[in-house]
Design a protein around this nucleic acid. Structure first.
Length: 171
DNA sequence: CCCTGATTCGC
DNA sequence: GCGAATCAGG
């Protein structure tokens, strides 16, 4: 996954709105929170406008790290990063602007604001993640743009393939 | 342990 | 430039 202009633009917007790096990573899809943080720094966005400057982390000793194992040196444990887990957690202290894009459900789970399409409006390129009680009038599908390879938008694809055991426990 | 952003440095 | 590993902290 590369940083297209669209993805960078979305990153800038969500970061400015106060979403955490892991939440942004989940929305973008295909990147880790580390990738988001790294990109944020390269774009020089890290300040997030806040006045109180960060404590300015100490520089690591420039000589031998020695203890850090080479990344590719341990193929035995190839666990994928659990990006997106935190997106399940509501950030009640989030900036108000952030809530424009996240809708709380059951006071605990957040989902991106969807297009709320009904069955007849779905196409091959709309997210088919269902929301709400299927028997209720409010039932709808997410309807956001789905990835070119799957039935869900990046956000819901993350949820769909996240093992239930790894989802954050909801109170 | 859950999470947050910050930094380094091999690639 | 990218991002995993790591660090420092809440």
């Amino acid at each position: 996954m590369n940083w297209t202009d669209e993805r960078v633009e979305l990153l800038r917007k969500l970061w400015a709105e106060g979403l955490s790096a892991s939440q942004i990573a989940a929305q973008l899809g295909g990147v880790s929170r580390n990738a988001v943080i790294g990109k944020v720094h390269r774009l020089k966005l890290s300040g997030r406008g806040r006045t109180t400057a960060a404590p300015a982390r100490q520089k690591k000793a420039s000589s031998a790290p020695a203890s850090r194992p080479a990344r590719a040196a341990s193929p035995a444990r190839a666990t994928a990063p659990t990006v997106g887990a935190t997106a399940l957690q509501v950030q009640f202290d989030a900036e108000p602007a952030a809530r424009q894009h996240l809708r709380a459900v059951d006071n605990n789970v957040v989902v991106p604001i969807s297009r709320r399409l009904d069955l007849t409006q779905l196409t091959e390129r709309t997210c088919k993640w269902p929301n709400g009680d299927p028997l209720s009038e409010d039932f709808h599908f997410c309807g956001n743009e789905a990835g070119e390879n799957g039935p869900y938008c990046a956000y819901h694809a993350r949820l769909a393939f996240q093992p239930a055991s790894e989802r954050r426990r909801v109170r």
